[in-house]
Design a protein around this nucleic acid. Structure first.
Lengths: 204, 204
DNA sequence: ATGACCATGTAACACGTTACATGATTGT
DNA sequence: ACAATCATGTAACGTGTTACATGGTCAT
């Protein structure tokens, strides 16, 4: 149900499905993704429901395009959604599930490699977002305290990405430090740490 | 595809679908969720594929139960998955999408209310996890540096939850401070901040 | 002419949720 | 008797991905 509202919200000016995909991929990719094969049918349905209206337009390059814009009904639908409070979905962090059961491999080297892969990925993401912010600051004289309302809200979401990646990296470092400490201890005195479950699962 | 591996990983001792649901709800709920209606068919499929084997057992209370355990094939399947590196799925943070388009409402009071709802929720979650950790520390003399390997890895995932919620709260506070500052400014000198998009979307 | 990009779509499949259906046992 | 908990499942629906199909324009 969320993609409906997201498309409605991104349609500030008339845009095609292809445009919306580009917007999603550029400014939004750290917290949302969608494929064209999902966007096109969704736009059609939103039009049928009266939230959008479409018209044909030509494009310099390639085929003709279909531009959509939000109707009054669409705007009020979007406002209702925004006023309904935060939509929390439950997060599915597959990599955390993997760490949870990493003891299966009985080898802390694997855990360490795994954590280092997470760190590499997140460091790259963090650098990416930092650059986005830096370039924005250079380009826009109003940055960050005199942005228009739309850009201001956009910046808040960018800050969330920066906070998150930084904090996950800190977590990675903590984990790596602790895993290394355990490995040193095991090497010092030939694995005295019990391998059997002490109270496996339940309130982890 | 992930639920398959998660069930395999959670099955350290023989357990029923109902048990697995309880494990998911207790130790894992801050990063994964699944319904019984999804778990039961998945277990059947995993058995058909040779990763699990089942036997009937009675239970004190209620009906008979079906206990599953992991086969050798299942263990090696799980090991392959764990060694294949972190599975990053793209995150869908609906509430961030909502903030992104919150300027639609042309009223910072709404943004503020929204952020305060996020803060309330996350504060509760953070307190919950802090309690889990505190009780664990009191209960288990090996905590946190002499846990068995399984519990150690479990603790790493708990730490991730603690880091995340704390960092999101910090982000909330930063946002709330900035929104309040903007509201004060607007009150001082009747809305001089441009409302029109300066460069809407694109690299946000 | 080849590949990169613009542009729109359909079909099949995979994954996940909600609602429904059944029935036993235990505690109040 | 009633509600809560144990226990297993099916059916319908909603959402999201991958693969496939089509065809135009532009630069090399």
């Amino acid at each position: 149900m969320s993609l409906d509202h997201i498309l409605l919200g991104l349609l500030r000016e008339p845009a095609s499905g292809y445009d919306l995909k580009a917007i999603l991929d550029h400014g939004i990719r750290h917290f949302w993704a969608a494929e064209l094969s999902q966007i096109y049918p969704t736009l059609k349905r939103l039009e049928k429901q009266g939230f959008l209206r479409s018209r044909r337009a030509s494009s310099k390059r390639g085929a003709g395009r279909v531009l959509y814009e939000v109707t009054a009904k669409g705007h009020s639908q979007l406002a209702t959604w925004l006023e309904s409070g935060p939509q929390f979905g439950d997060m599915r962090h597959t990599f955390l599930a993997q760490i949870y059961m990493m003891d299966e491999l009985s080898d802390f080297t694997r855990t360490l490699e795994f954590l280092e892969q997470l760190r590499t990925r997140w460091r790259a993401r963090l650098e990416g977002l930092k650059n986005v912010e830096k370039e924005w600051a250079q380009r826009d004289p109003g940055f960050p305290d005199h942005l228009c309302s739309a850009a201001f809200h956009r910046h808040l979401t960018l800050r969330m990405g920066l906070h998150s990646y930084a904090c996950w990296l800190a977590w990675c470092d903590e984990c790596i430090r602790r895993v290394r400490a355990r490995m040193r201890k095991e090497n010092r005195n030939g694995k005295p740490i019990p391998v059997a479950a002490v109270g496996a699962h339940r309130r982890g």
